[in-house]
Design a protein around this nucleic acid. Structure first.
Lengths: 260, 260
DNA sequence: CGTGCATGCCACATATTGCAACATCCGCTT
DNA sequence: AAGCGGATGTTGCAATATGTGGCATGCACG
């Protein structure tokens, strides 16, 4: 910080700062910013409108928040389509045998997988998700490795360089990965750069990797491709995706598995 | 007032926080939230009504609860000697200033410290405890680093070589460490080799380290000394220990701080 | 079975914000 | 120098959010 109280900042500079604060705090107030830049509230409002039209933030009364039309709050997500997620969990659990080393990504669908793994013996679970680690360490006959790193509050999971680094240290039998969307041309995409990279790395590292995606993700669009996605062994879903999507997907490699 | 926080949180931010707390604690109180956000109870009530209409929580007298609880147990253990632990928490929180880097050890007493840190701005929390990480990452204006490693189910926290390793990478302003007992000759001791080593390392690494021990630990005996224990800045307790213990302790170096 | 206290709820007052229309200012071109 | 266009400021009014007080209701406690 430490800049720009003296001279009025030009528009791009303000836009920059607005986004920076947004990323840092999750929300920004109009009045607050107007005072900071020493401009009128109208100007800030215009800035925000401009940014909102480009999808870089969400306007709310009194300011703006992170653009989360893409990513609703975590507590919300775990309840929606609970049935479908459970079905995915069962299908995923069927792929796991006693004694395996299993990686579980963050996300509510992978949490459903974790629940479905109850009863397996002697598993070793590696995860970046706090919730999954907490849940699994309460199970008997399970060893849990938490991959450390900075915690992303919206995922409640470790992200970033430390987590990426830690991934490399494990030999994983099977990995279950989340994703932001299943694009019309049969590819799993993600919300964030970090997430995409982390998943990419897992898909390449694990002996077998599966993406778990509930049907609400079909045909959605999120910004980031997951590199080397085609190395995944399969995609587990709770309802059959459109045939075109299935075909595009299987042409790349991964099988489509539909849970019941 | 270099930046920003003198303004009240925007409505969506409150909604978010309410849901996060709900997920963390299973229930939230109106008065408590009103104080936290510095808004009237009516406003919180309206927020809750809004959320309840969308099925995100259940209204109850005095606050709200989860629609369906996902996480039991842990809140229970921290209830025992809750008063004492809260007092320790407050005393500990008084030692923390906005912007600091704080290490929180695993344990229910350190969890109380975590709760008491609510309201501080811009903290960076490093912890090995899953529960603390989960709780703190739901706080606004807090960055959380989870130290990874194998999870000890009885502690629900990372232990072992990875965690030890990760400790060295941080510059910690203040560390709050648990312990198994406060021995009659004024020393903090521990149950496990790993724990003792981890705490020893923190005591040596952090700029200031405090052991937090509730009064049930006085005069107990556990097998492992914590090496370099005397490097700690203090021991925070909820009731005055026997004078002999205090004297022995302070002769070694650490101050005794009694929370109210 | 009251009593006291905290909470819930409603109505209204107040404050803050959104919006749109118009006025200014500044840099630039001709 | 005049004119132009974009960005910003100003103003008035509507919409929304929040605060406040009165009163009803529920809950704990003797």
């Amino acid at each position: 910080m430490s800049d720009s109280q003296n001279h009025k900042a030009l528009a791009p500079r303000r836009h920059d700062e607005i986004l920076r604060r947004l990323a840092a705090d999750g929300s920004v107030g109009i009045t607050e910013l107007a005072a900071f830049f020493d401009v009128s509230r109208e100007t800030i409002r215009r800035d925000m409108k401009f940014l909102a039209e480009r999808g870089q933030l969400d306007l709310v009364h009194g300011g703006a928040t992170l653009f989360e039309a893409t990513e609703p709050a975590l507590t919300l997500r775990s309840q929606e389509n609970a049935g479908g997620k459970a079905a995915i969990g069962r299908a995923a659990a069927a792929l796991v045998e006693d004694g395996m080393v299993v990686f579980l990504d963050s996300g509510t669908t992978t949490l459903a997988v974790a629940h479905a793994l109850a009863g397996k013996q002697n598993l070793t679970i590696c995860t970046t998700s706090l919730t999954i680690a907490l849940h699994m360490c309460r199970q008997p006959h399970v060893r849990v490795h938490m991959l450390g790193g900075e915690i992303d509050p919206s995922e409640e999971a470790a992200v970033g360089i430390d987590a990426l680094d830690a991934i490399g240290r494990f030999r994983i039998d099977v990995a279950f990965l989340g994703g932001g969307a299943l694009s019309p041309d049969g590819e799993v995409t993600d919300f964030t750069r970090n997430g995409a990279e982390q998943r990419s790395r897992m898909a390449a590292t694990a002996a077998r990797a599966y993406f778990v995606l509930d049907s609400s993700k079909f045909g959605r669009l999120t910004p980031l491709r997951i590199p080397r996605f085609e190395l995944a062994a399969g995609v587990i879903v709770d309802a059959p995706p459109p045939p075109a999507m299935v075909e595009a997907l299987e042409r790349k490699g991964p099988k489509v598995i539909v849970g019941e």
